[in-house]
């Protein structure tokens, strides 16, 4: 019995969400009295993989096949399934990312495993049951789900737990070859196009988020959001009406039909707080609302609030952050 953790890498580095997943997997392994092995996907360096020891990973498997640098659904599924069989993995842990959901769902069928996505807490294993808490109703609720069967797959929501860093501990990095054939790469991407992110911070992984709504009055005013985000090293987001009129790209839309995020800090600027928007952000640890309407429903869901004009308040906040740094 063992725990296998899928670690996503890009440009040599382990993604932040995968450090969280590694921490989660190591803790599950400790609960089950076993060790956690990682299988790395994407472009990684041996030194960075060895550092997964800091999250409690004992061993890292890495297949240096160059075509695995970009995500290929069939090849990744086969790679991870082969590793799971080799390691006798009873629990497979991955990130609730687009990659994690794509391979996790295929793996659940191939490995005859029960699957829970969007998981926000460590499992409870009292009474011989294996129960995980997951987000449901697009952030409006949680559900405790019983996973049955010998094998379980868990996709962990980003920012749901803090990655552990035990300095000096290293994992053993072991070369792994899944014997992939050309046919496994039939659905390889023809082209990968990366977008410039504000301040280089990816919204789904961001710990701090500054978000704007219709109260920003137009895309020409977004520099106010971006300046505060840059000062804080935060990601930027927006409400649905804003992405619907193309003031901002749709991947910044947080809410029930956009993405749900759970950063440590969410600053909402000129967003009234419709129920669909709240669903996307209400698992943020601290919520700040800036709105000139004191009756805006968002204030009821906030920890801190400023009743005022965003055009007056935002520059003051940016200046205060710069002063503090």
């Amino acid at each position: 019995m063992s725990v296998l953790v899928v670690v996503e890498c890009a440009e040599g580095e382990v993604k932040k969400s995968s450090l969280e997943v590694a921490t989660y997997g190591a803790q599950v392994a400790a609960m089950l009295g076993t060790t956690a092995t990682a299988i790395a996907v994407g472009e990684a360096t041996e030194a960075n993989l060895a550092k997964l020891g800091e999250q409690g990973i004992a061993k890292v498997l890495y297949d240096a096949e160059p075509r695995l640098k970009d995500f290929v659904n069939n090849a990744y599924t086969k790679l991870i399934a082969t590793a799971a069989e080799q390691e006798g993995a009873q629990v497979l842990v991955l990130a609730n990312s687009n990659i994690g959901a794509s391979v996790g769902s295929r793996l659940s069928v191939r490995l005859k495993a029960s699957l829970a996505t969007n998981v926000v807490e460590l499992p409870k294993t009292d009474g011989g049951q294996f129960v995980v808490k997951r987000g449901a109703f697009s952030g409006k609720a949680f559900s405790d789900v019983v996973l049955s069967g010998e094998r379980k797959i868990i996709a962990v929501k980003k920012n749901s737990l803090e990655a552990r860093h035990e300095a000096g501990k290293t994992a053993e990095v072991v070369a792994f070859a899944a014997q992939l054939a050309d046919a496994d790469f039939a659905d390889a991407p023809k082209q990968v196009v990366m977008q410039e992110q504000t301040g280089g911070v990816l919204l789904p992984e961001a710990e701090l988020v500054v978000s704007g709504g219709r109260g920003m009055k137009g895309p020409e005013n977004w520099h106010l959001i971006e300046e505060l985000a840059q000062a804080l090293h935060a990601g930027t987001a927006c409400s649905k009406p804003v992405s619907d009129v193309d003031w901002r790209p749709h991947h910044e839309h947080v809410g029930q039909t956009g993405i749900t995020i759970s950063p440590n800090l969410y600053i909402a600027c000129g967003i009234s707080g419709a129920i669909q928007h709240l669903a996307g952000v209400n698992s943020s640890k601290v919520i700040v609302v800036i709105n000139k309407d004191p009756e805006a429903p968002f204030f009821k869901a906030a920890d801190y609030g400023i009743v005022g004009d965003v055009f007056d308040v935002l520059p003051k906040l940016t200046a205060a952050v710069k002063e503090l740094n």
């Binding site: 029960s114 829970a116 449901a136 952030g139 609720a141 949680f142 559900s143 789900v145």
Partner: peptide, 11 residues
């Protein structure tokens, strides 16, 4: 089914 909801909760 392989999974079963035991309980729901509100935030």
């Amino acid at each position: 089914a392989r999974t079963q909801v035991a309980e729901f909760a509100l935030p």
